[in-house]
Write a protein that binds this DNA or RNA. Structure first.
Length: 485
RNA sequence: CGGGAUGUAGCGCAGCCUGGUAGCGCACUUGACUGGGGGUCAAGGGGUCCCGGGUUCGAAUCCCGGCAUCCCGACCA
């Protein structure tokens, strides 16, 4: 079996090195993942992009169910008085909510907000549903859209309306709530690494970056190919904050009246943006097989009476692959040449392309082209399905390894602020540095370098004996800094 | 909300300085030949030149006002 490297060809896409932001938009639009809409700040998720979201949903939903959660649906509208109850929550979200003031022509007695997140409305319902410790825990997830009136929007990363899931749980004890918070963060990490092939740093957010109304916030953070970090998921331990405000009380085993301990956790369509920027190259999108709408695209080579010879063979292969649960598309359009299709499907990130023509049929083989390595090789028809299955698994693994290597190469550590500043100006990425825990130092670093603390990883090295990067006083932890989206 | 730029065919742009029939590339339609890395030829369709006002015989072009979008900063999944 011979292997050859596919030659580079110019695409309609701005190279990453020239302008990463533009590369990103070019890819999203040319790959037909999403498009701008006439509505300010809102995008249309096109079928190809939505198929990715459906695969992400399936992967996560299966994991949520496996950890005991069930799905439900709560209203899109939240009365003003509910949103306003929790002080920190109000301060965090009031500036960016959309208001509904009229129903038809009539002015509403009480304004409604379009949910920016659902802690308040769900908390209100939990107060009705919980009386006894026997009613706990409540483990509910919701797949929904939310609206946040952001000033700046970017396709998938930050739009006025976006799709997400939000889990909201209520527990008997603080320990249980903390376990749940960390359990779901671990689910996110495992999903990101296994299905998205995106290595992430899991850890705790600093106070200044934590969710409005939470006691503790945790996140997973990925590193994009331009060296900027992206928060890909968050999990919050709400303590008893919302329980006290919404009066979610239960009678405990010792007959006393107690407030529940809450958590909430979410990931959004932003994950699609994360995948694009973790794996993509100048040829366009590169999709991990597990979330690729088409894992294999078959391009039949139209020659002579190909419809009688090549096409049936391609269809037979397709049927066999589909029978094994592989997502396959035969691109038998006559309006495009094979070369055009090769480029198109590479641009759209399909992990594996299968070419089959008269020459292959003579030799009882096909040609396989990997998107990640851009290698082409021939493969025998015998055992083809098993070969493709193993290749897809190899690609999935290779993408993760490549992303992990990129992150390792773009992670440094320093105790010196001068060096820190130099790194942030030059080759960006994660920088691990000792920090005293003071919000003032954190804020000063952000102002001076644009870098923020992404989180404090669970496996962060001990900081005993170290001094804070910024102020020089004794450090309490090693924090992971980066410029972020 | 501050600083900068840009609005011309679906997309990317030229034309504007120096006013005179609205163009180019890609895409699209029809047909033929093609087809193993973005094919060739032929024939076509498509315009509120962002909006409003002004100057002028005549405005995409000059002047005034507005709006929108994008980029850079402060807020964010």
């Amino acid at each position: 079996m011979s292997t050859e490297q596919i030659p580079d060809l110019p695409t309609a896409i701005t190279p990453q090195s020239e302008d990463f932001a533009r590369w990103y938009v070019d890819v999203v639009r040319r790959a037909e993942l999403a498009d701008y809409s006439p509505v300010k700040g809102c995008m249309v998720i096109r079928p190809y992009g939505y198929a990715m979201w459906e695969l992400i949903q399936q992967g996560l939903d299966r994991r949520f169910k496996a950890t005991g959660h069930v799905n439900a649906y709560f209203p899109l509208f939240i009365p003003e008085s509910l949103l306003m109850r929790e002080a920190d929550h109000v301060a965090g979200f009031a500036p960016q909510v959309a208001w509904v003031t009229h129903g038809g022509t009539e002015k509403l007695e009480e304004r409604l907000v379009v949910r920016p997140t659902s802690e308040t409305i769900i908390g209100t319902m939990y107060a009705k549903w919980v009386q006894s410790w026997r009613d706990l825990p409540i483990l509910i997830n919701q797949w929904a859209n939310v609206v946040r009136w952001e000033k700046v929007t970017r396709l998938f990363l930050r739009t006025t309306e976006f799709l997400w899931q939000e889990g909201h749980t209520a527990h008997e004890t603080a320990e249980e709530a903390q376990e749940e918070t960390l359990r779901m963060l671990a689910v996110y990490k495992e999903f990101a690494e296994n299905d998205l092939a995106m290595p992430v740093i899991d850890g705790q957010k600093t106070d200044s970056e934590k969710f409005a109304g939470a006691e503790r916030t945790y996140s997973i953070e990925g590193l994009m190919r331009d060296g900027r970090a992206l928060q890909a998921g968050t999990s919050h331990n709400l303590g008893q904050n919302f329980a006290k405000v919404f009066d979610i009380k239960f009678q405990a085993r010792d007959k006393s009246l107690q407030y529940v301990y809450g958590t909430s956790w979410g990931v959004s369509t932003r994950m699609i943006g994360a995948v694009i920027m973790t794996h993509g190259d100048d040829g366009g999108l590169i999709l991990p097989p597990k979330i690729a709408p088409y894992q294999v695209v078959i391009v039949p080579i139209p020659r002579g009476n190909w419809k009688e010879t090549v096409l049936p063979k391609a269809q037979a292969i397709r049927d066999e692959l589909v029978g094994r649960g592989i997502r396959v598309f035969i691109d038998d359009r006559e309006s495009q040449t094979p070369g055009w299709k090769f480029n198109e499907w590479e641009l759209r990130g399909v992990p594996l392309r299968l070419e089959i023509g008269p020459k292959d049929i003579e030799k009882s083989q096909v040609v396989l082209a990997r998107r990640d390595t851009r290698e082409k090789s021939s493969a025998s028809m015998d055992g083809l399905v098993a070969h493709i299955e193993s290749l897809l698994a190899t690609i999935q693994r290779a993408l993760y390894e490549r992303a992990l290597q990129f992150r390792t190469e773009h992670t440094s550590s320093t105790d010196s602020y001068d060096e820190f500043k130099a790194i942030m100006e030059g080759r960006p990425g994660f920088v691990v540095s000792p920090w005293c825990g003071s919000p003032a130092c954190e804020a000063a670093i952000k102002t001076e370098t644009q870098a923020t603390i992404r989180n404090i990883p669970f496996d962060s090295p001990p900081a005993a004996g170290k001094n804070c990067l910024k102020c020089g006083s004794p450090a309490t932890v090693h924090a992971w800094f980066a410029k972020a989206y």
